[in-house]
């Protein structure tokens, strides 16, 4: 319940909107206060002035036509909105499908990329391993090759053998020479024990 002042109550009464209880109080107040009565009359005249502004008048036929036109317009717009929503839904579906296909394609590309990277890495590892093995083999091969010392010893060996063949009797009678040859033979047999001579045809 809103408490009204005099002008508000007068305006509502002149407008025909005042409740009966408040109206009774207003008229009782105006009976006692002529100034309030004058104010009420002024507000009534002001409102009448507003009401004197003409409204557009329509014949019954015009009214019917306009009502029909408005309803038809509303239905037309509703149909248009429905069509637009349908079209929008269709586009959204197409968009979602394309997005799905794109996502699957992207996922495939990523998987393929990862596979290629993985494969390349494993190939690199394999190549490194082969290189390491080859290097190890090379190292072993170079370790098995006769050194210059071995070759020198072999030369000495060969020379001794030649010498023994050439001077068999004289040399064997020489005591010192015999001792030297036995030392060399021991040396050779010891070397062969430690380092067996390479087989023919090997590196």
């Amino acid at each position: 319940m809103t408490r009204l002042n005099l002008s508000e109550a007068c305006l509502l009464e002149a407008s025909g909107e005042l409740g009966s209880a408040t109206r009774q109080r207003l008229y009782a107040h105006m009976e006692k206060h002529p100034e309030a009565q004058r104010q009420f009359e002024q507000i009534k005249r002001d409102l009448s002035l507003l009401r004197s502004i003409p409204k557009r008048q329509m014949t019954e036929e015009t009214r019917q036509k306009l009502a029909t036109s408005i309803k038809a317009g509303i239905r037309k717009k509703l149909r248009q909105i429905e069509r637009e929503e349908l079209s929008c839904r269709r586009w959204r579906m197409i968009y979602n499908s394309l997005a799905g296909v794109s996502a699957v394609a992207a996922a495939l590309i990523i998987v393929a990329g990862l596979w290629v990277i993985n494969r390349s890495a494993s190939q690199n590892r394999e190549r490194d391993r082969v290189l390491a093995v080859r290097k190890a083999i090379d190292g072993m091969i170079s370790a098995d090759r006769p050194s210059s010392v071995d070759e020198a010893l072999q030369d000495v060996n060969d020379s001794i053998d030649d010498y023994q063949n050439q001077t068999s009797t004289v040399a064997l009678q020489d005591k010192d020479m015999h001792q030297l040859l036995s030392v060399l033979a021991t040396l050779r047999s010891e070397r062969d024990e430690i380092m067996p001579p390479p087989e023919p045809g090997s590196l």
Partner: peptide, 16 residues
């Protein structure tokens, strides 16, 4: 269709 409206003095009420 052509729908036309006309102004009409709303009521014979006093001005100021």
């Amino acid at each position: 269709e052509r729908i036309e409206m006309t102004d009409e003095l709303a009521a014979k009420v006093p001005a100021p």
